[in-house]
Design a protein around this nucleic acid. Structure first.
Length: 494
RNA sequence: GGGCCGCUAGCUCAAUUGGCAGAGCAGGGGACUCUUAAUCCCAAGGUUGUAGGUUCGAUUCCUACGCGGCCCA
């Protein structure tokens, strides 16, 4: 052992395992072998090797040379021969190492490798008598010594907490987890391609904002030292994106993180990925069509095969109908708090005494409608009180042109025909201020620079936000947002 | 915020009524040239989440706290 007499007693088992691996690395260095070399060029994906030799017969050997790299995942000794499993991002391949082929010295070095070590392999393709496509090893190069033991090679890493806190271990141990995050990446690249092909330009607007807005949420705050000024982490990019529409960019989108200082749940992480796009000369109906199409493209790109039907046109209802048909309460006919509360009581529904009218509508929607919207559904035409940035409905008094889309019992999207009348926008901010004064912590702060931009003239515009994490949840069948976020927010371990 | 459940070796899991904390895998030593959760033999590996309490004796019962999961709000 490498440690001396003054090593603390009661050393943990894990530290012993680490010490044993470190000793191997030291022994390699002493023998002139670098355990952390700089590069290993021209590796081929394991999946490509497997594809190339798919038709190989059992027991057949080839002269076809391949170079692969990856992590040593399993080993089955056999005296003068050893079988090992190598894993890279694309798959797993068996290695056959024979002492009479590589030589006794190399064989000893190879069998001294630890599970979890990163290695480069040169070999020829064969199929074993038992039918497993393998590389018959000519040489193995240690690419990086793994000093810590990997999760169980068969059971993997089951502890949910460890999987989230130490995602690298989860990714090492779980092909499903790797596949999920590759799927997530495909969703995002599909979205970019879809919007790019329509002539949208991708933009980046401030994450650190002097004033927050564009959603009903409480912000995180931070401080800029040089400016000695408080900043907010954005809760949405909406207002900046609309300023770009004023500026004539006409079709813009932003894909990035928003931050909301609220509870953590299976559907909420304090930072999450949002797509917003804005399209000049458009309205919410055009946007609704694009939403269906972009989600369908994503489902196809990831070969979605779950129970949600993303191929057919989505179910469409008004918000009023959606609540009335399920609760028997008409929110449009009961436009004040007391009459809506009375209507709810009449139907035997619970009425939280402190709620405002808007909060009662939200209660009805969240509790009695949303959970039933498993198949994709778009709810149109929201009350003006709930929607400070949506344009008045072209034919319905008191409503705005807004929709929310639901699937899997979850809101995934929110869109408007954007309010572009600066005077009306100013009145909406005044309404928000009244709500804030009444104690609503999610009310919009008055944003004068946004109003000034609208006064410059914004064309009729449709805009939308789509929750990417939730979309990925649906497309991967994940029950919690933590499964689709690489490093979800956690409390401190101690 | 409330209720319930969990926390034991690096990983996956046991432990009867409160009575010396056990396996498998991984790691160490050995055997084995077509295995694939390889197999076989040997040895080793623990502050049972933390802090208290009850008890002759606590992984087990009680209290508090921490972290996580599920359900509810």
């Amino acid at each position: 052992m490498a440690e001396g007499q003054d090593e603390p007693v009661g050393e943990s088992r894990e530290e012993e395992l680490v010490a044993a691996r470190r000793a191997k690395a030291d022994a390699l260095r002493a023998a002139g072998v670098e355990p952390f070399p700089h590069s290993f060029e021209d590796v081929e994906a394991i999946a490509s090797v497997l594809d190339t030799h798919e038709a190989l017969e059992n027991g057949e050997e080839t002269e076809s040379k391949h170079r692969v790299g990856g992590r040593l995942a399993a080993r089955r000794g056999q005296g003068g021969a050893a079988f090992m499993d190598l894993v890279d991002r694309t798959g797993r391949i068996q290695l056959l190492v024979q002492s009479d082929h590589v030589g006794d010295e190399a064989f000893a070095a190879i069998t001294d490798l630890d599970l979890g070590d990163l290695i480069g392999v040169d070999g020829t393709a064969i199929r074993t008598r038992r039918g497993e496509l393998s590389l018959k090893v000519d040489a193995i190069t240690l690419l990086a010594k793994s000093l810590r033991p990997p999760p169980d090679k068969h059971h993997g890493l089951k502890d949910v907490e460890t999987r989230y806190r130490r995602r690298e271990l989860d990714l090492i141990a779980s092909e499903e987890s790797r596949a999920l995050f590759i799927t997530r990446s495909k969703v995002i690249s599909t979205i970019r391609r879809y919007l790019d092909d329509l002539g949208f330009i991708e933009v980046e607007t401030p994450v650190l904002q002097p004033l927050y807005g564009g959603a009903a949420a409480r912000p995180f705050t931070t401080h800029h030292n040089t400016l000695d000024k408080e900043f907010f982490l954005r809760i949405a990019p909406e207002l900046y994106l609309k300023r770009l529409i004023v500026g004539g960019l006409e079709r813009v989108y932003e894909l990035g993180k928003d931050f909301r200082n609220e509870g953590i749940s299976q559907k909420h992480n304090p930072e999450f990925t949002m797509l917003e796009w804005y399209e000049a000369y458009s309205d919410y109906m055009v946007i609704a069509g694009r939403l269906e199409e972009i989600v369908r493209e994503c489902a196809r790109a990831v070969a979605y095969e779950g129970e949600i039907d993303f191929e057919s046109p989505w179910r469409r209802e008004t918000l009023q109908e959606s609540i009335h048909s399920r609760c028997g309460v008409d929110i449009v006919a009961n436009r004040d708090r007391d009459s809506l509360a009375a209507a709810m009581k009449e139907k035997g529904l619970e009425v939280p005494e402190t709620d405002t009218w808007a909060q009662l509508v939200d209660e009805l929607l969240t509790k009695h409608v949303e959970p039933h919207l498993q198949q994709p559904t778009i709810l149109f035409d929201y009350p003006k009180e709930l929607s400070p940035f949506a344009k008045d409905h072209r034919s319905q008094d008191g409503l705005v042109e807004r929709f929310e889309a639901y699937a899997g019992g979850m809101e995934i999207s929110n869109a408007f025909t954007e309010l572009n009348d600066p005077d009306e926008q100013r009145r909406r901010f005044e309404m928000q201020k009244a709500d804030a004064d009444a104690g609503d912590e999610e009310a919009q702060p008055y944003d004068e620079s946004f109003i000034r931009a609208l006064e410059q003239g914004m064309p009729p515009t449709g805009g939308i936000g789509i929750g990417i994490d939730r979309l990925v949840m649906l497309l991967t069948g994940s029950k919690t947002i933590r499964e689709v976020v690489l490093f979800p927010a956690m409390r401190d371990e101690q």
